[in-house]
Design a protein around this nucleic acid. Structure first.
Length: 282
DNA sequence: CGATGCCCCTGAGAGC
DNA sequence: TGCTCTCAGGGGCATC
């Protein structure tokens, strides 16, 4: 579900509610998401002040004044919902706990953040802030695509020699961190590269275009507040609107936006749908 | 080591 | 109305 632009949008929505505030109550309503919560999870959260809210790849990182960082992943269907905060001129009431509301954080000042995740592919953990890089979920992540460590040269080096479709390489979080099925499809369309192309057959020129396409599609999506399909909402409940700008994702059978006579096709690669234009993606 | 499937879980929508 | 089937923004892990 949420890929980098959606997680970044959620981070921006949560930041004014969480950053600098103390957690006065943590309600953990089930023992696990994808994995069990760490021992004493609620106790370790209660009373802690959130010093900063950061993002690494698709992970939200809340640094606590206890010296630990709360790591959260939204999985496929996870949402962070805010209630009780002043939004505009209105002061929302807290809704009754809903189905799949798994973790509820009450903040000083009256705001509440609820983590809701129907499919429970999401995860939460606590880890020493000073040692975050060693966490098993973060240790192997590749560079942030919007950061300085990611470049066409780096991408080309990671594509080199690999006998697997370029799409699989872009989805590999060890190569570049934060892309998912939607934005990989969109970036490949922007770079005019077929998702079927073997990674080793991507030229240096194409790697330039691909790296640029990856960055630009993420920036465009963040500017639009992410993409809202089924579950994803911005933290304030608003829908992102980048889904209206999709060139290929979910557009099977529709004409290519390049007006090249192509019709968007769908195929399955390693169990996931790839959308592409056979006319311009070679 | 690299590549490929399977699987975790729930819900929505299509087809019958 | 209800059943069955397919599909869904992720990604760890076993297997070859």
């Amino acid at each position: 579900m949420p890929e980098l632009p959606e997680v970044e949008t959620v981070r921006r929505g949560l930041e004014p509610v969480l950053a600098g505030r103390r957690i006065v109550r943590a309600d953990v309503r089930r023992p696990d998401l994808r994995w069990p919560f760490p021992p004493g999870f609620a106790t370790r959260l209660t009373g802690a002040r959130i010093m900063a809210l950061r993002r690494r790849s698709k992970y939200l990182l809340a640094d606590l004044d206890s010296g630990e960082t709360l790591i959260a992943h939204l999985g496929m269907s996870g949402r962070m919902l805010i209630s009780g905060a002043a939004v505009g001129e209105f002061h929302h009431e807290h809704p009754a706990p809903a189905k799949h509301d798994h973790v509820v954080l009450d903040m000083e000042g009256g705001a509440r953040v609820t983590f809701n995740d129907a499919r429970r592919f999401g995860a939460m953990d606590l880890w020493p802030t000073a040692d975050l890089a060693s966490h098993r979920l973060l240790a192997g992540l590749g560079p942030e695509p919007l950061g300085n460590a990611f470049s066409a040269a780096i991408l080309l080096a990671r594509l080199d020699g690999r006998v697997t479709p370029v799409k699989a390489v872009l989805l590999d979080q060890r190569v570049v961190a934060g892309l998912g099925n939607i934005y990989v499809c969109e970036a490949l369309w922007r770079a005019r590269i077929s998702p079927l192309r073997l990674a080793r057959d991507v030229s240096a020129t194409e790697a330039d275009e691909l790296a640029a396409a990856v960055r630009q599609v993420l920036l465009d999506a963040i500017a639009a507040g992410g993409s809202s399909l089924k579950d994803y909402r911005q933290a304030d409940g608003e829908l992102g609107y980048f889904q209206h700008s999709f060139a290929v994702y979910g557009r099977e059978g529709e004409p290519c936006r390049r007006d090249d006579g192509g019709t968007i096709a769908r195929m399955v690669q390693s169990g996931r749908s790839s959308f592409f234009c056979p006319a311009c993606q070679l």
